[in-house]
Design a protein around this nucleic acid. Structure first.
Lengths: 138, 138, 138, 138
DNA sequence: GTGGTCTAGACCACT
DNA sequence: GTGGTCTAGACCACG
């Protein structure tokens, strides 16, 4: 596990999202044990306090649950996980479409840009090569 | 001009993005004068120093230029503006597709979700209700 | 650490240059921790915000890097430091030679003036007395 | 006449220096008439107030003198001009040598760098190409 | 403890 | 009027 951190967002939020994505995508299954604070802190080179905060928040959102003395586990309520998946997907979708429209793109532009992009984005590519060459009316 | 501010992101960054969107979408044309620090500060009820920082960063990105004693102006290099549009669109696109893939969506899912969404999103809707239109299997 | 401040140039720029010189000359080594904002502010009797700005600019130039919650460190990329050394030396050189030529000095004059100067400048001397050693015909 | 302005220094100072250099280098001779405020302002696209200030300062330094109703003229005291030349050259020299030493260059390095530079700098070259290829111990 | 942001209010240089 | 800088002091997030 490794994360590229973005300085404009609190680290604990970034780790939270990372874990939520792992759960939602099935990489972490309901009921799975998640790493301990110390373990994850060492792994990510992050202060344990920050990890602690991450887990607190995840618990508040009922994404993970603590079994005293045993460790922390992904919630086994699959409906909860589905709800999170919908929420996260909805956020991404809205942010994208709304953002593109603010940049002046029409709905049709957006669809075709996405179509084109999923064709190319099989291999990840460096951050700088992202803004690929399709041209749209100014 | 009015902006809904979101915590978690510095105000100066939000105003920066807002102005960049106005430029990229054509609402502010190349060579246009942009509001003065004091004017915008009063308008948005934000401290002038924060606006100053906003403009300073925009200048660093060569989006606006200062004419001493006269005010600030949108860059007249249209190629620069096009580059920013591409960059911002590319960022949105990457963030969306990458994010959706991390959530476990396949490329075809993504395309169809977008298609469906642009059909419904004529009316904006509150932030929380927006993910409801389409169903996704786990 | 103490700096003689010159008006006409912003303080934050003077401190920036001072730190860059310390790095380039080896006084601060790659990877070294640099003083904290509050520490340096107290040390130089300068407002912390001004120091903050100094460091922010140094970071933008990739001369220092921030470790969240830990402090700021001199970049460990030595090639970056060499590049800055070259840039700063090149600036000084250009400014000097260009300036002298604008004053009407020929290339040979410039070389001999420098030769003569390095001979005498072992002792520093006050700022005003320094141009007396050599005579130049109008 | 045209000047590249540097944003970190007041414009009137930059114009002052420019004129002083023209005088010192002989481009403007003792007793020559200098352009009027309006003329120079139009020429440089600068606010007349700024030019006015420039001339005031030059007069304070006795570099130019006003003949009422006739215009402004370069001082005819050649000794004054020589003094300015010495002062400006001394400033340049000190700034250069002192600066290079702060960067960690030894006196011998400085001399050889200058020697090398005057060999190449016959043609002016863009600002970026300045930091030429000679390598010096780290 | 660290840096990051924001507010409030001031002074300056330039047009 | 404009932007640029600086001070003073506050709050927050992170470790």
């Amino acid at each position: 596990m490794s994360i590229e951190f973005d300085n404009n967002l609190p680290i604990y939020l970034q780790i939270m999202n990372h874990i939520k994505r792992q759960i939602v995508s099935g990489l972490l299954q309901p009921g799975d044990k998640i790493p301990s604070v110390r373990e994850l802190a060492a792994d990510l080179q992050i202060n344990p306090n920050t990890i602690q905060r991450t887990f607190q928040e995840l618990e508040r959102e009922e994404v993970v649950e603590t079994k005293r003395g045993l460790g922390r586990y992904v919630t086994s309520e699959e409906s909860k996980i589905m709800a999170i998946k919908k929420e996260m997907a909805g956020d991404l979708l809205h942010q994208f479409i709304h953002g593109m429209q603010e940049l002046g793109f029409k709905k049709q532009d957006i669809v075709s840009i996405v179509k084109e992009a999923v064709g190319n984005e099989g291999s990840e590519g460096k951050k700088e090569e992202r803004a690929n060459g399709h041209t749209v009316e100014g």
